[in-house]
Write a protein that binds this DNA or RNA. Sequence first.
DNA 1: TTTGGCACTCTAAAGCCGAGAGTGCTAAAC
DNA 2: GTTTAGCACTCTCGGCTTTAGAGTGCCAAA
Lengths: 357, 357
Amino acid sequence: MYNKESTPGGSHPALNERTQHLLKALVERYIRDGQPVGSRTLARDAGLDLSPATVRNVMADLEELGYLHSPHTSAGRVPTARGYRLFIDALLHLRPLGDREIETLRQRIDQPVQNGAELARTVSDLLSGFTRLAGVVMLPRRNVVTLRHVEFLSLSENRVLVVLVLNTQEVQNRIIQTRRPYNAMELQQAAYYLNAQFTGKDIHQVREALLRDLREARDSLDRLMQTVVEMAEQTFETEPVGEDYVVAGQTHLMQCTDLSDLDKLRQLFEAFNHKRDLLHLFDQCLHAEGVQIFIGEESGFGVLEGCSVVTAPYTVEGQVLGVLGVIGPTRMAYDRVIPLVDVTARLLAAALNEKRD
Amino acid sequence: MYNKESTPGGSHPALNERTQHLLKALVERYIRDGQPVGSRTLARDAGLDLSPATVRNVMADLEELGYLHSPHTSAGRVPTARGYRLFIDALLHLRPLGDREIETLRQRIDQPVQNGAELARTVSDLLSGFTRLAGVVMLPRRNVVTLRHVEFLSLSENRVLVVLVLNTQEVQNRIIQTRRPYNAMELQQAAYYLNAQFTGKDIHQVREALLRDLREARDSLDRLMQTVVEMAEQTFETEPVGEDYVVAGQTHLMQCTDLSDLDKLRQLFEAFNHKRDLLHLFDQCLHAEGVQIFIGEESGFGVLEGCSVVTAPYTVEGQVLGVLGVIGPTRMAYDRVIPLVDVTARLLAAALNEKRD
DNA sequence: TTTGGCACTCTAAAGCCGAGAGTGCTAAAC
DNA sequence: GTTTAGCACTCTCGGCTTTAGAGTGCCAAA
């Protein structure tokens, strides 16, 4: 599950029991109703039978240490990013999902789908549906891409449709421009050769093998092999599985009162579309173990001010395939969100494992 | 180009020249700067050398007739939906695109792409980029779907990957569950048979031919034909080309001051995601000729209050393939948007025609 | 160390005011 | 008959003040 030690965020000086308890109560209260929490409220909430005055002293200390912040003199206190950090790392009491919820998730994830993108869509819908936040699933990505089958179809004079089946599941189609026209027979033979020769091999190796060894010797090759080389050159040219992700439920973010600044929101939505920056963020999570959480600007990414990102990588046979998670206002119900992200990642991994055969 | 007569919207009583001119000037002014227009401003703007008092009288008449509306006693006037309608149908002076702009568009649209979805994405990016509104492109849809090629690949015991090439361009992949396991040879033969027999045929006919004629005679068929029938049953089961569209640049809508109501905006965004309702709207435009415009609630679709939709169908060989267009605040620069949508539809049609071979 | 008390601060909501924009109407001018 | 000037009137918007309430910080007593 979520490894509390593993998360970075600066060291915390020892706080005594009571102080921690009050911080915890304050954050929970603030997460619940979004209002700055005052001493009287907190005193009642914490169940410690302390007077507001005492609580005030503690709160002053916590503010001094950078865990809390007053919006202004006479409002209550609000957790800072640092405060959330401590809360999540040390104080949070997770609320694991019920069996029924897990079962619901499993059923939805195990439903048959056509391809990885569709599965990603389903899962990010799930994430966003359960949390009422934005769900994100990074598409499966492998460093070992196995060629399962390749097929060439002539579309016109110099255009050939390539159908590439990878990893037993993923199908890619691409259209390539050829130097000269090929007839159906030639294409068929080339495909046959490639399939016979390279099925089950890693695609990078295929490329290596074909191009390094054969390209220079091109002139001396027979006609078939020349065809093979030209096809292969373009077929395996670019990284066949692009890096991408699927977002669902962005609109939920428009409902959180915390993110009501229209312009901020717009920038956030644009970030979802541009992808580049967010991909960078997710890449960081790829190699972390278990659930990882970025609070506000911790992500080093201005647009996410006021937002938190909760992610978990999902793996098949120890190989990290991608990351999934949730993006929402920093004031989110971590106790529910963290287990959900965690379980979802596991279920997705399990589903992919099954399909792997 | 845009056929002014064809658009519905109720008949308009004859307005004299001057009144029309003033309405036109008012709408233009309002579109330009978004403020209710007062009599003094309009008098100066219209260039008719009239006193504000005269203009006031005219405005009062126009309000009486339902073309204008005062937000309150002492603001200027604002066009009503009816006012926009008249403006667009009878008063608007289009500003055609420059040759350079058209050339830019053409180049972007003619760039080689992998498939219809990618092209749709490009075009809706274009639409949204040029207008700073949301661009929409409905994916090509044909009632005649030609089978170009089919391929079967065994994935596991009872799962077969079907690769379907349609209309020379579109590739579809689907995974089907079979009743019994098939080996590679059987699948290959089945595919070979189907290709030999049905390439170039309409896919509905293929389904008809195979299933109606052969299913009942199943028991008497040889092994090959039994395979063919089982494959075909599932391969051609569902409508192979789904109805869908691509939206780009929604975030632009968050910038228009007109649509600053966060909750309205949220509903609009959700409508983009749910698709169903909007698809219905676009379906209506499919069979209209040329550019069509819905103003606000005219679309009969509450979420679009305050929004206008400008669409045009695009056709290949007289067959309507889909619709594209733009969604934005009713206060948009119609004189630019209409020609843009019109030209884009033509260019897209041309591009698709070329690719058709 | 905790607590009650108290003066103090700050915000948010409500109310008020004046300036400005724009109207509608009327009576005079064209 | 149409157009215009004049004028009283209306309404909003921004700024200002006021007030209630929430919450603090500090001090002195328990």
